[in-house]
Amino acid sequence: MATAPKSHDHHDDHHHGIAHVASVRVLLTTWITLMFLTVITVLATKVDFGPSMNLAIAMAIAAIKATLVILFFMHLFYDKLFHSVLIIGGLLAASLFVGFALMDSGQYQDSIRWDVPAGTP
């Protein structure tokens, strides 16, 4: 394989050329974990922990899976800090969006008239 002119070592993982190269072991481990978590999350819904608890479990598993994908498949673990800042910034902006909208609509739900067909005065 060709050796690139510049190489920076900042990890014990091998690091060729201009970016980090993920090892097969890391990729496969991540993948197996992801598959395993998928099975877990499906199974978890079969058990009744109470509706909010079930949701919490499902979302927690999803968050773990997402983190794994981001860190290893997307190399963020080895990547520039700024890229993490970006993704976190994006999530923050999105959560602001969710938060404010939820805060507002939560307040006016009781004034919505679900019971009447539209067009009725």
Partner: peptide, 9 residues
């Protein structure tokens, strides 16, 4: 029709 709380914030 936004809520008073949201208006304040």
């Amino acid at each position: 029709g936004q809520s008073a709380l949201a208006n304040m914030v």
